[in-house]
Design a binder for these strands. Sequence first.
DNA 1: ACCGTTCTCAACCAGACGGTTGACAAGGAC
DNA 2: GTCCTTGTCAACCGTCTGGTTGAGAACGGT
Lengths: 117, 117
Amino acid sequence: MTDELSKVFAALADPIRRDMVARLCVGDATVGELAAPYDVSMQAVSKHLKVLESAGMVTRGRDAQRRPVHLEAEVFELMTKWIERYRRQAEERYQRLDAVLASMDETEEDRQEGTAS
Amino acid sequence: MTDELSKVFAALADPIRRDMVARLCVGDATVGELAAPYDVSMQAVSKHLKVLESAGMVTRGRDAQRRPVHLEAEVFELMTKWIERYRRQAEERYQRLDAVLASMDETEEDRQEGTAS
DNA sequence: ACCGTTCTCAACCAGACGGTTGACAAGGAC
DNA sequence: GTCCTTGTCAACCGTCTGGTTGAGAACGGT
């Protein structure tokens, strides 16, 4: 799991990390602030942040003892691009399938995809 | 990891499964066809398909021995909605931050976020 | 100098994940 | 019927993951 996109999706697969992203959209936060709503140790939260950080979704600052967490929103573009690509492709496919089904009324080929249900 | 969204993100965290989704956008496929490009057993592919299926991203048909796999594109909407929500929220935040920074020129408060780099 | 706060690192543990092999069900083809 | 193809189920295995606890680093307050 070395590629960026995999890391981003994996990071977002955990509800706590999704919550944290949501929280960070409102503004930067410290580890303690991020940990507060959950019944887990700060160490666990620290680990979650490492996951988000290694996915490039978050950067860490320094303010005395505190390590403010900052959301890097650019990664959203990466996902959006991936999703959009295949969504569009899938939609095209449906249009092509319609065309195929239409032409099948006359040509009547052998077996064809789209037999499901 | 019981909720739909988590399952979808987790499913997409694996490059092989992302590839399969890409392949399925072109058209339905059998397990063997999906397994062919990879150096893994058909059983492994079968497992990947179970993951995609339990995430609601794929349905299985029946054509004699074959079990054609069909992509359910609707789940993309779910992800897109989640991502868009927070992306927009993040953008708003930046605008608000700009406003704050602008007003700081006159008020000069104590500490403020955005100290990083 | 000492204490308290904030946070990370290291070790450990149970469970999930991704892969394997082996057995077998389901359904044409002959 | 018997064989071959297609695919699933079950058991096993090594690794990753998400959590814990304990120790300690970094820094401000007094």
